[in-house]
């Protein structure tokens, strides 16, 4: 007798994976906590977080829209202004340290910088560079808009029961003098790159884990009932500044983020990890959930991830909410700022 002999078959590769059709692989997630249909759920992070928010809303869950579009604005127009994409108009929050930065602003631990990017008479938010197509009319308008986003983000922290965060990148850009982090390299979507002021940092495991725990603990201080669900974006890097081939940079980046998510979810009882990354990226799925560019996730992949999410949730915590509603189409309508990098790199197609 050895310890493996008493294990369920899900712990063995052959019966759990190799002998199954990829669509029959099951029980990949055992939720730590219930997500009831009335529990307010906030979603933030990298591009892939948008799918989770949309699926929750589509299936009748209480997805938080803390900064809703004005009444009467058509959904497609609203989306171009970043409404309804995440639970507030933060734009993509790619890194754990960016999350910590937003949490600090929202809870009053630090003041958001007054840095403004200006080009051709239009003004851009360095922390939400594509939130306003074509830029804001003035610096004041930009700062007022950011103030609204921070208020809405604070509401998500204090009123949500579940905070879903999708870790996206390890590669990041900082203001060398003032220490704040940008979601995108200045000079790509907006702004102007200044090698003296702007610094590239490829964040390591220790830094990311520290920042993630710092952000989560601070949110829990503000809202002791808050649970956190982590995911890792399966979307490969559009471009890398690491000096490695983008394929290697992607692999290393995702491995680090996955390791941090696993470690933090094991260490903190109110933090869980949902394996959307594995469902899209791991070998049994043979890359079939990627678009032809091998970067974007196709609608079938998104649907399978979310079906798995709800199936696992229902299995552990049966819910009387089988609305039958399905989320809207996924293809081509995810607002992914990082993809803009492709437009600014010579060979970084994506």
């Amino acid at each position: 007798m050895n310890p493996y002999q008493s294990l369920d078959e899900r712990y063995f590769w052959s019966p759990a994976v190799a002998q199954k059709n990829m669509f029959d692989i099951e029980r990949l997630w055992e939720p730590k906590f219930r997500i009831g249909p009335r529990a307010p759920v906030a979603t933030f992070g990298s591009c892939f977080a948008q799918h989770i928010g949309r699926a929750l809303k589509g299936r009748g869950f209480n997805w938080m829209d803390a900064e809703p579009a004005p009444t009467g604005l058509p959904a497609d127009v609203a989306k171009t202004f970043g409404f309804g994409v995440f639970s507030a108009r933060t734009g993509n929050i790619y890194t754990a340290s960016l999350l910590a930065q937003w949490v600090g602003w929202a809870l009053g631990d630090s003041a958001p910088p007054e840095e403004v990017w200006e080009k051709d008479g239009r003004f851009y938010d360095p922390f939400r560079p594509v939130i306003e197509p074509g830029g804001f009319a003035s610096a004041q308008e930009m700062l007022a808009g950011r103030e609204m986003a921070i208020e809405a983000f604070r509401k998500c922290i204090t009123e949500a029961r579940v905070f879903v965060f999708t870790l996206g990148l390890t590669e990041s850009w900082f203001n060398r003098e003032e220490g704040h982090e940008y979601p995108m390299c200045p000079g790509t979507a907006a702004g102007e790159f200044d090698a003296d002021r702007h610094e590239f940092r490829n964040q390591d495991y220790v830094f990311i884990r520290r920042k993630l725990v710092e952000a989560i603990r601070r949110m829990r201080q503000a809202n002791p009932r808050l649970s956190v669900l982590l995911t890792v974006s399966p979307v490969p890097l559009t471009a890398t500044m690491s000096g490695n081939h983008v394929l290697l940079a992607t692999t290393e980046s995702k491995a680090v983020l996955r390791a941090v998510a696993g470690s933090v979810s094991r260490a903190l009882p109110f933090v869980d990890y949902f394996p959307s990354y594995e469902i899209i990226s791991s070998t049994p799925y043979r890359g079939s959930f990627f678009e032809p560019n091998q970067r974007g996730v196709n609608p079938a992949g998104v649907a399978h991830v979310m079906d798995m999410f709800f199936a696992c949730l229902m299995a552990k915590y049966p819910l009387p909410v089988a609305t039958g509603k399905k989320p809207g189409k996924a293809k081509g309508d995810v607002a992914c700022e990082e993809a803009l990098l492709a437009a600014f790199g010579t060979k970084a197609g994506g």
Binding site: P70, G72, L73, F81, A137, G145, M148
Partner: peptide, 25 residues
């Protein structure tokens, strides 16, 4: 024809998009 409730901090672009849509009601 329903006047929209809009936070006055929203941008002029968003405001124009809303009023433009309303003018097509």
């Amino acid at each position: 024809l329903r006047p929209p409730k809009m936070d006055r901090r929203l941008s002029a672009q968003v405001y124009r998009a809303v009023t433009s849509e309303l003018s097509r009601c």
